[in-house]
């Protein structure tokens, strides 16, 4: 009897030894909560799924551990010989099914919301190239080419002899960011001019492939001003790791003045169709 307790204590501490760092890491290295309604919903969904998985894990691994400890031959020399139990089998078919439904419903809700691009207030076209992004604002005929910033570019090559650590936002800094207004539903129309790329900014809860010859649509509504970073996330060649995305969200008024400013500095009016490839 005493030994049983000892074992239980052993196991609990072992479990704690594994869980504690896990939870610590899960806290430090987790999905960003993000700054859009969708990113919030995804975060919630992900955490829900994570905790459900932890719950199932406790049950399943608990049962295994129990069996390993108490049904080892030294303690339990006479094996039972049951090999069927219909009720039990139905139970462990139905319960997982119910758990899955419980996850599927909110997931479906978030999905439908995330993919509803109607009623947006601003449209930006995003085009992937090997290896940079082009952002076009059809309303203002603004056209931005966004490449890896020189600061990273100097360090990146093999044997460059420079350290990435001292560079701010190594690989996540660009020449010109995408600037968006806060609080508006912005529709992004994403495509590519060569191979498949993917436009991924975790803080915005957006990842959408840029397929050559096809236009995908997705939307963002940024709730907080700030700078949000991501990168191309579909293997696209030599420069795949060097295709960052930076989004700067500004309050509406500042955004409009940025628009004015940009247009003053780049006066030639461009329609998307006449936009030159870089």
């Amino acid at each position: 009897m005493k030994k049983k307790w000892l074992h239980a204590a052993w196991c609990t501490s072992l479990l704690a030894a594994i869980t504690m760092p896990t939870l610590w890491a899960a806290n430090l290295y987790n999905l960003p909560h993000g700054v859009t309604p969708v990113s919030h919903a995804i975060y919630g969904l992900s955490m829900m799924a994570f905790w459900i998985m932890c719950g199932i894990a406790v049950v399943v691994f608990g049962a295994i551990t129990w069996s390993i400890i108490f049904h080892r031959r030294s303690r339990h020399p006479k094996p039972a010989d049951f090999h069927e139990n219909t009720v039990l089998e139905i139970v462990w078919t139905v319960i997982p099914f119910l758990i899955l439904i419980a996850m599927a419903i909110p997931a479906a809700r978030v999905l439908i919301r995330a993919e509803n691009v109607h009623h947006s207030e601003l449209t930006v076209e995003v085009t992937g190239y090997q290896w940079l992004w082009r952002y076009t604002y059809p309303r203002w005929k603004i056209n931005i080419y966004s490449r890896l910033a020189d600061s990273s570019l100097r360090i990146a090559p093999l044997h460059s002899g420079r350290s990435p650590y001292s560079t701010p936002h190594y690989l996540h800094a660009v020449t010109h960011p995408l600037v968006l207004p806060v609080g508006e539903k912005v529709r992004l129309l994403i495509t590519s001019k060569d191979v498949i790329h993917s436009w991924w900014v975790p803080d915005l809860g957006v990842q959408m492939d840029a397929n050559p010859g096809l236009v995908n649509s997705i939307w963002v509504k940024i709730l907080k001003p700030g700078t949000y970073r991501g990168q191309c996330n579909q293997i696209c060649g030599w420069g795949h790791a060097y295709m960052p995305i930076v989004v700067v969200a500004k309050p509406k008024a500042q955004f409009l003045s940025w628009v004015k400013h940009w247009r003053k500095r780049h006066p030639q009016a461009l329609s998307p169709a006449t936009t030159p490839d870089p």
Binding site: A63, I64, S67, H71, R73, H76, P77, K78, P79, F82
Partner: peptide, 9 residues
């Protein structure tokens, strides 16, 4: 797991 359960492991 049920196979392991109450076996002589």
């Amino acid at each position: 797991i049920a196979t392991m359960w109450k076996g002589a492991l």
